[in-house]
């Protein structure tokens, strides 16, 4: 049983919704990312999605694009991101870590080398935004061999007949994209989310979490009511953007930076 499975199972038993913050590794630098990760755990994050910076983030909106640009300006590489995870694992073996990014850095490192490095660093799952299931067999096999979960997206546009191939390839949790658009866009159509999540429930036993467009306690609660958890990315990255390059990691400042996460935790806990 993978760490993500255990986290999800434990949460389900405790009637607790999964809270999954997303941030870009290396934004504004790797040391600060590490400090924020530990802070997020302290505020109730169950799993952390760590963005691998890529020069051409074509599924991301302007807020995350700029986060990626800041990380790349520091020369952040996939190897360093894996190093960051290994460092994090020295003091935290409970929190799930999912790497989210685009295929080219992984392809450049080589699937096998990446799978081995991810596993030994303590990565629990990988979500490759531009790698749909029909192209994913080879990478999936490598990740499964080292017991790292492979997470896939379902979008409002996903056709019924594709869902089976997605759930077949997916492990850990299923990521439902709440809207048509890019990360950080405004979430408006709650009705279609409800319908689509209910349909997905009939098709899979996987935990379902919702991401894109969740920006505060209110939207976290609204989406959390429908799913097993929520992902908050742009609203956090927007706050990280305000940090100076050199911040005092123990300061109140970081608490303020991640306030959206602690507020979301509170709102989610009130649901049950």
């Amino acid at each position: 049983m993978s760490r993500i499975n255990k986290i999800a199972e434990k949460a389900a038993l405790a009637n607790r919704k999964l809270l999954i913050p997303y941030l870009v590794a290396g934004d504004p630098n790797l040391e600060t990312t590490s400090a924020i990760m530990h802070k997020l755990v302290g505020q109730g994050a169950d799993i952390i999605e760590l963005g691998i910076p890529f020069s051409d983030p074509s599924s991301d909106g302007p807020i995350i694009q700029r986060g990626v640009e800041r990380a790349l300006a520091k020369g952040t590489t996939l190897k360093q991101v894996l190093g960051l995870v290994a460092e994090f694992r020295k003091t935290d073996t409970n929190t799930g870590i999912v790497l989210m990014g685009y295929l080219n850095p992984i392809e450049t490192m080589g699937y096998k080398a990446f799978a081995e490095a991810a596993s030994s660093a303590g990565v629990d799952g990988v979500l490759t935004v531009d790698l749909p299931p029909m192209e994913a067999d080879e990478l999936n096999a490598m990740m499964r061999a080292v017991e790292v979960d492979t997470i896939f997206l379902v979008a409002p546009t996903t056709r019924e007949e594709r869902v089976a191939s997605i759930t077949e390839h997916c492990s850990g949790y299923l990521y439902y994209v709440s809207l048509k658009g890019v990360t950080g866009a405004a979430l408006t159509d709650f009705g279609s989310v409800t319908t689509n999540i209910n349909k997905l429930r009939e098709r899979t036993q996987l935990p379902i979490v919702i991401g894109f467009g969740i920006k505060d306690a209110e939207s976290a609660a609204a989406m959390g009511r429908l799913a097993d958890g929520v992902i908050i990315g742009s609203a956090l990255v927007e706050k990280i953007a305000l940090l100076a390059d050199q911040v005092e990691h123990e300061s109140e400042l970081l608490t303020d930076t991640i306030r959206v996460i602690s507020e979301a935790r509170e709102a989610l806990d009130k649901l049950v």
């Binding site: 074509s58 599924s59 531009d130 749909p132 192209e135 979008a155 409002p156 546009t157 996903t158 048509k180």
Partner: peptide, 19 residues
């Protein structure tokens, strides 16, 4: 499926797959 040998294919986010 859109491949020329190992090249080509479909590498886009899920939202665009149906399109």
């Amino acid at each position: 499926s859109g491949h020329f040998g190992p090249y080509g294919g479909v590498f886009v986010g899920e939202t665009l797959i149906a399109a």
